[in-house]
Write a protein that binds this DNA or RNA. Structure first.
Lengths: 227, 227
DNA sequence: CATAGAAGTTACCCGGAGTATGATCAAGCG
DNA sequence: CGCTTGATCATACTCCGGGTAACTTCTATG
């Protein structure tokens, strides 16, 4: 209901003189929160986050309304980061491939895309396990009433878009798109979660095995059902 | 550390005369807890569960030690149920298939197994969404110190065992087994979670699409890497 | 009968989410 | 300048759920 954030001239009475604007402050808070979670783990309390930001709890609640709202904002920020990392990784991988439209070329492109994406994801898990754990288990979730539908949906949508761009628009039915996207994301989550506990296998091998599974699944969904 | 539960003759002083034995009581508690969670959702409080069982909180803690311990017990019970439902479903599906050892027979068997398993799982989600949500988001998790490693591992192990039995023992490397198992389980979780929110597609179709993806992934992991 | 050991309940503690209240500051207006 | 207004922020609270301490009750055993 706090719809006061419309059309205000960004410098209102009450704001400290040289202080940050509302959006700057929001970014600071998100950054601080991610730092704390990265350090102390996914169940950092709101007090800890506020203290790390040099502020107190009510400020957080003014900005995010809820702990779930805050988790949602953090998830969005993480999604942003991962997207950037992923697109650069993708661009590099695709630049190495000769263009072409044959079936084998299409397979090679798909393979390269999947490997690059999964490698970027697993690298993220490797670099910051606590942030990954936060993504997997957003605290205060488990109730479907809030809109913390997590980045699973975002990621699934992104996969869907990439697939559409690769194989043409009407190739997959909406159901197939949903199932394939969720399968890939969920499988990657589960494998990464296991790897996060048991790092007994190098990253490259993990990505290879997972990619083989995923690519085959995608290809199978692309060919018409032969049941 | 309460290791007093060793070698006691099951009828000790202190127990009410006609009352249930310790294991019976434990089963009652689990049953009551599952009932409450099924009714009020996955974030039922310990007080609610205790009240539903006609008892009070300390009894629960005496039996399960912890909320995580309780969640672990509940997960085990659910795993038991699902396993039963699954094996019967599997037996029925496999009975319809003619035996044989050719590659196409093997593919048909694998397909039948995967379809039956996924159908049993999705049926479980359909019949009791709240229990499924509890499985997905065990409350009080997010800290790796407790042993609530969830049934993801159990399920992944079960898949691994089935696969070994189907394709022979040394066919898959340990890493492959882990990756395939987690991929299947995680993908099924994610797809089911989406379907739980958006039931816009009949169960059979969902299972078909998911099975196609999973079977292809498994088959690909079985064939030696062709990069 | 007295003792022991287990089951149960009441009443509490503790920590984290979320909020009511008041202090403080900056701009605008007389 | 003095006053009002509207915004930020901190102190200090309430509320609720997980977990526990202490006491009572009961049954079997010596």
């Amino acid at each position: 209901m706090t719809k006061k954030s419309v059309g205000v001239p960004s410098h209102r009475p009450g704001r400290p003189k040289g202080g940050p604007s509302r959006d700057e402050r929001r970014s600071e808070l998100i950054e601080a929160a991610l730092g704390v979670i990265s350090r102390v783990g996914p169940l950092a309390s709101m007090d800890e986050i506020a203290e790390a930001a040099g502020l107190t709890k009510p400020v957080l609640y003014r900005h995010f309304g809820d702990k779930a709202g805050m988790a949602s904002a953090l998830a969005a920020a993480l999604g942003e980061r991962l997207t950037i990392q992923l697109t650069t990784s993708l661009a590099g991988a695709l630049a190495d491939l000769p263009p072409g439209r044959s079936a084998v070329r299409r397979h090679a492109r798909l393979q390269a895309i999947v490997v690059a994406a999964l490698d970027a994801f697993v690298s993220f898990v490797e670099q910051d396990p606590n942030l990954f754990r936060f993504v997997i288990h957003p605290p205060g979730a488990a109730d479907p009433k809030k809109d913390v539908i997590a980045l699973t949906d975002r990621a699934a949508d992104a996969i869907m878009l990439v697939l559409r761009a690769e194989v043409g628009d009407g190739q997959l039915s909406p159901v197939q798109e949903a199932v394939v996207g969720r399968s890939v994301v969920g499988g990657a989550y589960a494998v990464a979660e296991w790897w996060d506990r048991d790092r007994s296998v190098p990253r490259a091998k993990l990505v290879d095995e997972l990619s083989a599974f995923v690519v085959a699944g995608i290809e199978a969904s692309l060919t018409p059902t032969k049941s």
